[in-house]
Design a protein around this nucleic acid. Structure first.
Lengths: 160, 160
DNA sequence: GATGGGGCTTCCAATCATGGGAAGGTCAAG
DNA sequence: CTTGACCTTCCCATGATTGGAAGCCCCATC
């Protein structure tokens, strides 16, 4: 199986497969004499594992931990759980940050007439401050992920 | 006022002030003969506006829209509201994505013993698939932000 | 007046995960 | 043997932000 087929079979783009190999997340694939990477079902299995971890928002670093634990027969499920719980905390933390922003904006938007006149509490709030919710410059630890499969787009952003 | 003082007064780092100027989000500051940027209270006001918008998770592009609307006496509050509502939708969408991931993981973590034995439904789920929640490769539109002020860290990530 | 330290300047690099594209080699079908 | 689909590597861009280097500027103290 060439990389394209492995990509289709795993849901990880060929680009990302090469990238994951380059950073050591997955082992280097075997090569044909011509230099083409070849993949066996076992490799696709690993790629699927990675894709699913990615779909759950794990960072590459965390995925590396998970893959290592997966390959470790003597792992303690407590270790896996610890990685998961840490990530859950990150996800919840970020979700809360986003919700807080959303709610602040919703309150402001509610009292905005949304007509042809310029008066707008949203703009006023940005301009005035005071009532502004003190943003807790938390040490955001985790990161977001884009969407998995193929139709992806490079998303990004700060987490503030 | 030099850039350092403007930064302290606005909550936007000197680095970011220069960056915002370079991309045209804020107008180029006046300079002293020596080339130092100088800021008046009006400029700090603008910087504060930008910081607050950033704190609400607006992208630079959206902030540019907001600043333009702010400076437009003849704006229609409907335009401001539209920007806000669009952003609220983005925030809610992302928050939901994160929550979905979190909940999936929470379910798995609940049934994980978390002891010395290797058996772990979390790893099993990543390895097996099937029961895996089909990730909706949405066209995530918005982006996340890091934390504002100074003690920030370059966060990032995909949103998947 | 010289020296030192802190602030300022610009420019380049890194972050994180991903896609885009170029230049060139390979393979299988026609 | 040609064509087109696929593979290879390498570099670039994204978004917002920080870090750091090299060098200039300003003020205060000796």
């Amino acid at each position: 199986m060439n990389i394209g087929q492995a990509a289709a079979a795993s849901g990880v783009s060929a680009k990302m497969i090469r990238y994951y190999e380059s950073i050591g997340l997955i082992p280097a694939a075997d090569r044909t004499d011509a230099g083409y990477r070849t993949y066996a079902s076992k490799d696709v299995h690993t790629l699927r594992f990675v894709r699913r971890a990615r779909d759950l928002g794990f960072s590459v670093e965390e995925m590396a931990e998970l893959v290592a634990l997966w390959n470790d027969r003597d792992r303690a499920s407590a270790d896996v759980k610890a990685v998961a719980l840490r990530h859950i905390a990150d996800l919840d933390h970020k979700a809360r940050e986003l919700q807080a922003m959303s709610e602040t904006l919703k309150h402001l938007a509610e009292s905005c007439h949304g007509d042809d006149r310029p008066d707008c509490p949203i703009i006023d709030s940005l301009a005035s401050a005071e009532t502004f919710p003190a943003p807790k410059r938390a040490k955001t630890v985790a990161f977001f992920r884009r969407h998995p499969g193929s139709p992806i787009h490079p998303a990004q952003g700060r987490v503030r």
